[in-house]
Design a protein around this nucleic acid. Structure first.
Lengths: 191, 191
DNA sequence: CGTTTGCTTGAATTCTGTCAAAGCAGGTGG
DNA sequence: CCACCTGCTTTGACAGAATTCAAGCAAACG
């Protein structure tokens, strides 16, 4: 069932087919309908979550009711509240399917054992973690100095898949602007 | 000499005095004059760096010449380009003393060995990494939804030490606004 | 179908950046 | 000790960027 994860493990984590199968033996498959939640505030993230198919986003809701999008993800990506997963503390985020989705979940206890057993897997996740950190740093620097137009064009260059796949208002909330203003930007671009 | 680091190791990493001394035996002390650089683009970060005294900031310079401040730090804090340190790739950042400073440097090879030897030290740095990640995430979310006034007031609440210690234009560049506008905000606050 | 959900548009308003000028130190050299 | 830098801050006028609010429209959904 989790073919994409197996492919990822063999081509990116460089596991043998047997090793990959061993990892997969611990995997639970989870199917989500559109708008269904994978994680909600108060819950503790118990799994590493790989998107086999579909699309999800993680976001917070502030006291004033505004939504802030932290991550958008599609098939082939990992999506999680890393803070909650690593510290086993209550999350403050929502992770919701924006399309019907299928996920492969690796329970944390099982993964902890597997990581010690398979160095390739450790390197893979260490690399993922470092990249997540750097990406966040990049995003912080991006937001510091560029106006909305620049941030939007860079977003489109960097993630052409996402721009078309998610509703505009989610992209807007990822970029930190209002949907109305993003609509204006887009209309300027068309002309 | 590195009394503050010893204190940190014993009270926060919960090392015994003997363990702390062992770590300190690998430490190099580095003294910086005001405006001197600890790291510049192209260099690889070879050490974990603890600020014994003084103040530093890390920042990037974009193609258009604008500066973006990533971190401000004072005595008792760690300062580094974690990306460069972890991956041993060339940095793209400046780290510069904004006041005369004294730092304790732990070379990466020595620290790697020490981490394996002293679980308390591992937990300490793991916790630091996680907190760095979460802080970055918080900052990203902060920038997404709040206007400059709110970001500034939160900054003052969260880091009252920093607000008084660094020139306004650095605080402005940390917050992602112009120094002139920060000046206006401040004058509004006084009245 | 009707309902929901998301997108577009425009006008008024607020927020923030730009530019230029002046003020205010702290440090330096004479 | 003073005069002069130099670097940083303040101020104000203005332009541009972005939000808010309200209305209408289109597509998707059940």
């Amino acid at each position: 069932m989790p073919e994409n994860l197996q492919l990822e493990l063999q081509t990116k984590a460089l596991l043998s087919e047997a090793e990959a199968k061993e990892v997969l033996s611990h995997v639970q498959v989870k199917t989500l309908k559109r708008k269904e939640f994978l994680l909600q505030p108060g819950m503790v993230s118990q799994h590493m979550r790989f998107i086999e198919s579909g699309a999800l986003r993680s976001y917070t809701i502030e006291d004033d009711g505004s939504e802030h999008t932290l991550q958008l993800g599609v098939e082939g990506w990992w999506i999680n509240d890393l803070y909650s997963y690593l510290t086993q503390q209550a999350s403050r985020m929502f992770i919701q399917a924006t399309e019907p989705a299928v996920l492969s979940l690796i329970p944390k206890p099982a993964l902890d054992v597997l990581l010690r057993k398979h160095p390739g897997l450790s390197y893979y996740f260490l690399d993922k973690f470092q990249k997540a950190y750097v990406a966040l740093q990049e995003r912080t620097l991006e937001q510091l100095g560029n106006d909305a137009k620049d941030r939007y064009t860079r977003f489109c260059e960097q993630y052409p898949q996402l721009e078309q796949r998610f509703p505009q208002y989610m992209v807007a909330s990822y970029l930190g602007i209002t949907p109305e203003f993003l609509s204006q930007l887009r209309s300027k671009f068309r002309s």
